[in-house]
Design a protein around this nucleic acid. Structure first.
Length: 113
DNA sequence: GCGCTGACGGGAC
DNA sequence: TGTCCCGCCAGCG
């Protein structure tokens, strides 16, 4: 471990990689799972560097608390993120995940069960 | 060494 | 019920 910050990033990546297909989660839930309830921004920042870690992280399954594809613009392509979500059976409309409350995956909750 | 921005969240109006 | 503003942590100029 080079530093705690790196371990923190890996913790975020690990949780994101645990997200089952057809499910999504929010930055706040991940932040709470790692103990950073108010660090939702840090989660997004970490995912911004997810490409520096391997294996790649399915960040397309991570959305904001509104179910909006906040990081869609950062994926590179225009609708790359929405396309991946729809490919997993997730309904995406106008960059917004439909039935978000039904497909949301809470890490701190699922990992505890 | 200081300040601003940023893939957000929650509370207040 | 919807929208606006403030707060938090870390990286970067």
């Amino acid at each position: 471990m080079a530093g705690k910050n790196e371990a923190l990033y890996e913790a975020i990546y690990d949780i994101v990689r645990l997200i089952p297909r057809g499910r999504v989660t929010s930055y706040g839930l991940i932040a709470a799972a790692i103990g950073m309830k108010s660090g939702a921004r840090m989660v997004g920042y970490a995912l911004n560097h997810c490409h520096t870690s391997s294996p790649p992280v399915p960040a397309h399954r991570v959305l904001n608390r509104n179910g909006l594809l906040s990081g869609k613009a950062h994926f590179g392509a225009g609708d790359e993120m929405a396309n991946l979500l729809q490919a997993e059976g997730i309904r995406v409309k106008d960059d917004m995940v439909q039935d978000f409350d039904q497909i949301v995956w809470d890490p701190s909750r699922e990992l505890e069960l």
